[in-house]
């Protein structure tokens, strides 16, 4: 078989629907906007779990907070007749991620679980990934951020503390995924549905966030993904995100995005 044929076969392979079945997992998050009350517990949980720096009042005012997940709020209409909509947005772990094509040094790439991962040590800070990201999910370490005295003992030992000048973004709590996979391997079984829970999903008081493996047809996310309320953010861009939202049902029965 010639080189060209091999390449063609690989390309066709990639386009086949079950491509990711080759891998162990296809991690997916489902956010039920009907359940979400916009409390922001997921944001706080992410800070605690992933060693996110707290940037202070001034920097925060400029919009340079490093939260990997944010609650976007949109207000529609004039005062008496106001509609407020909100949606939690994090890294969408796109299957066809625009950020990956931008990085000249492979600091961001697609891993075996269908996740879009960021290698902090490799990042040189060209900002290309963040520029290309349609969801503005990427955050940059503008300065060296240090925690004050007692708080520096509070770092999560499972997560790197990023240095100044590197890009970062939501990981679906990859350290928890890794731990669950290790345990499963030791016990010679597959990872069970619900065994992995990212910090945001764990902290959500209304249980609006579900996390699981899309390759497992019986998982909760696979079932929820078939919901008629399903949509994905900026789906028209063909980035094929791994975060699935379920529309909110309004009083009059209509759905709101």
């Amino acid at each position: 078989m010639g080189l060209f044929d091999k390449m063609k076969e690989r390309l066709e392979d990639f386009r086949r629907p079950g491509y990711f079945k080759k891998y162990d997992h296809k991690w997916t998050m489902v956010v039920d906007l009907d359940k979400c009350n916009g409390c922001g517990a997921c944001v706080g949980a992410c800070y605690a779990e992933n060693n996110l720096p707290v940037v202070g009042k001034d920097e925060s005012g400029k919009g340079r907070t490093l939260s990997w997940i944010r609650i976007e709020r949109y207000v529609e209409g004039e005062y008496p007749d106001v509609k407020v909509k909100f949606i939690p947005v994090m890294c969408q772990q796109c299957t066809k991620a625009p950020c990956e094509t931008g990085c000249p040094v492979y600091a961001t790439y697609h891993n075996q679980d269908g996740l879009n991962v960021q290698v902090y040590n490799r990042c040189v800070g060209t900002f290309t990934c963040a520029t290309y990201c349609p969801y503005d999910a990427r955050r940059f370490n503008w300065f060296t951020y240090e925690r004050e005295a007692p708080l520096d003992k509070q770092y999560n030992p499972d997560v790197t503390v990023r240095e100044m000048g590197v890009m970062e973004k939501g990981t679906f709590c990859i350290q928890r995924i890794r731990a669950a996979k290790d345990t499963a391997k030791d016990e010679k079984r597959a990872v069970k549905d619900g065994e992995v829970k990212p910090a945001c999903a764990q902290a959500c008081p209304t249980g609006a966030m579900y996390f699981g493996d899309m390759n497992d047809a019986n998982s909760q996310v696979a079932k929820l993904a078939n919901s008629p309320r399903r949509f994905r953010l900026l789906e028209e861009l063909n980035t094929d995100p791994s975060v699935i939202y379920l529309k909110k049902v309004m009083k009059d029965g209509s759905s709101a995005e």
Partner: peptide
Amino acid sequence: KGQGVTGLNVPVFW
């Protein structure tokens, strides 16, 4: 100090 001394921000990284 870091790139923070510039006016760059999310999402105007360039």
